[in-house]
């Protein structure tokens, strides 16, 4: 069976739209009949990633590949990059500005949370060039 491929552009300036792509991916998974707990895990991970694209990445793209065995998501931005990935992965570490905190985000939980809700998470980042995060959730 051919995988279902989805692609979304995420605006870097419109915070109100952040979550639009995650919502669509969630809806698609629901229509395809995946288990509710798996859908929620994918939705939370992609949503956190999408918020990061807006807050840190200056926007970007989300690509999803769905098969009956695995949900693969790739989030890509051309933002400033992550100088120290290990540090960024620490719970509570955040470089988000105050205005982002006022919106309810920037607690330094985004990346650790993505890891928590996925089976595989690979971060590739280069300072000044951007960040790519590859996620996989396996259907058990």
């Amino acid at each position: 069976m051919e995988p279902l491929v989805l692609h979304y552009d995420v605006s870097g300036t419109d915070f109100t739209c952040a979550g639009e792509a995650s919502g669509k991916i969630k809806k698609t998974l629901k229509e395809l009949g995946f288990p509710a707990s798996l859908i929620r895990n994918v939705a939370i991970a992609v949503y956190e990633g999408e918020i990061n694209l807006v807050i840190h990445g200056g926007g970007g793209v989300i690509d999803a590949e769905i098969t009956p065995e695995c949900i693969s998501i790739v989030l890509t931005d051309q933002g400033p990059g992550i100088p120290d990935i290990a540090l960024a992965m620490q719970e509570g570490y955040s470089t988000a500005p105050d205005n982002v905190r006022q919106l309810g985000f920037g607690a330094g939980m985004g990346l650790p949370n993505i890891k928590k809700y996925t089976d595989e998470m690979i971060i590739e980042s280069e300072v000044g060039k951007g960040t790519t995060i590859r996620l996989k959730v396996f259907v058990k």
Partner: peptide, 17 residues
Amino acid sequence: LSGLVNPQVVRTAEMMD
């Protein structure tokens, strides 16, 4: 329950079912 009012409150609730 939240005192925060922006679209992300609804989106968060959506992702969490």
